[in-house]
């Protein structure tokens, strides 16, 4: 390590631990605003026992942010499973010259869907390839429409609202022992509470606390109209479908955290640090997935 380097020490227990984990990542991001900025980023996973999709997508956005500023990023050599896992999913290959981070990258790991930089023109292709991967490899006979729709809602949300310079990243992992599929997306954009309150101020309405603003964003019909095509259905649709399957949702954005448990109960918490942009983690219970539906109905349906 040389003077001017920033060492990112990732430390985790055997659980998602987002509240404890994300500050280190966001501190590395905020270091980019210091003068002078770091000359290099060294990622140290020697004390890290567990990396979840939520950790990975924040790390990906961080590496992207450093890469955009032409600051070198390297992974410290460690003799542990996390180091091997990052190698197996080719994490640091993504920033090698010529690597297309926006394309669907096939991997040998059956339980892992590739890291993906979200591009608006690739939303459908990625969601369909991802759905096919899990349908063929992991969950044959199950109706995976909810996976495709959740991905579509998450990707569209980033593309329409985030204003993120690093675009955003998505990663999905299947945990067969727990019967869970976990998808995480992250962007380093404006953040949901900031976006909601900007809209409120522009409308002459009193801004909300960050936690209240985050909760407001999930209410059906609430939209910042970042594009004229938004109607405020996306995040509500996501939350509703996750609840229907007994899944869980976590949002971390700016100084707010929101969680929805399998019973559909929503809890919010003020964070002691600022998350640049938004991290969303969707956990689906695969045991609750419906079976593939029968052939199309012979009737016709009106409105």
């Amino acid at each position: 390590m040389t003077p001017g380097d920033f060492t990112l020490d990732l430390v985790s227990a055997d659980s998602p631990q987002y509240i404890d984990f994300v500050p280190a990542l966001t501190a590395a991001y905020h270091a980019l605003s210091t003068s002078p900025p770091p000359t290099a980023l060294l990622v140290n996973v020697s004390a890290c026992r567990f990396l979840t999709p939520g950790h990975l997508v924040v790390l990906a956005c961080l590496v992207e942010a450093y890469g955009q500023r032409k600051i070198a990023v390297s992974l410290g050599v460690s003799d542990n499973e996390v180091h091997d896992y990052l190698k197996n999913i080719r994490f640091f290959d993504y920033w090698k010259p010529g690597f297309d981070r926006g394309r669907f990258t096939r991997q040998d790991l059956e339980t892992t869907l590739c890291l993906w930089q979200i591009h608006p023109e690739m939303i459908y292709q990625h969601a369909r390839e991802a759905q096919a991967h899990f349908s063929q490899q992991v969950l044959p006979g199950k109706n995976l429409d909810v996976l495709g729709l959740n991905w579509a809602e998450l990707f569209n949300n980033i593309c329409d609202h985030s204003r993120s310079e690093v675009q955003g990243y998505c990663f999905t992992q299947h945990y067969p022992g727990r019967q869970q599929i976990v998808t995480a997306v992250c962007d380093f954009g404006i953040g949901i509470p900031t976006s909601i309150n900007q809209m409120r101020r522009a409308a002459g309405v009193e801004p909300l606390s960050e936690t209240a603003a985050l909760q407001e964003a999930l209410r059906r019909g609430v939209t910042t109209r970042s594009t004229p095509r938004n109607r405020g259905f996306g995040l509500d649709s996501l939350a509703t479908s996750v609840h229907a399957l007994g899944g869980e949702l976590i949002f971390m954005s700016n100084f707010a955290l929101l969680s929805q448990n399998p019973a559909g109960e929503v809890h919010t918490k003020k964070l002691p640090y600022c998350v640049p942009g938004t991290l969303i983690v969707v956990t689906l219970n695969t045991a609750g997935l419906p079976d593939v539906e029968d052939e199309p109905d012979a009737d016709e349906l009106g409105f």
Partner: peptide, 29 residues
């Protein structure tokens, strides 16, 4: 997805109304 629905059925409703939708459109298959 909701984005697709917004720009299809949502815009049809906005521009032509529910009566027109009910009168003209049926879903099959």
């Amino acid at each position: 997805s909701t984005s697709f629905l917004n720009s299809s059925f949502g815009d049809l409703l906005d521009h032509y109304g529910i009566v027109a939708l009910r009168t003209s459109l049926k879903l099959v298959d």
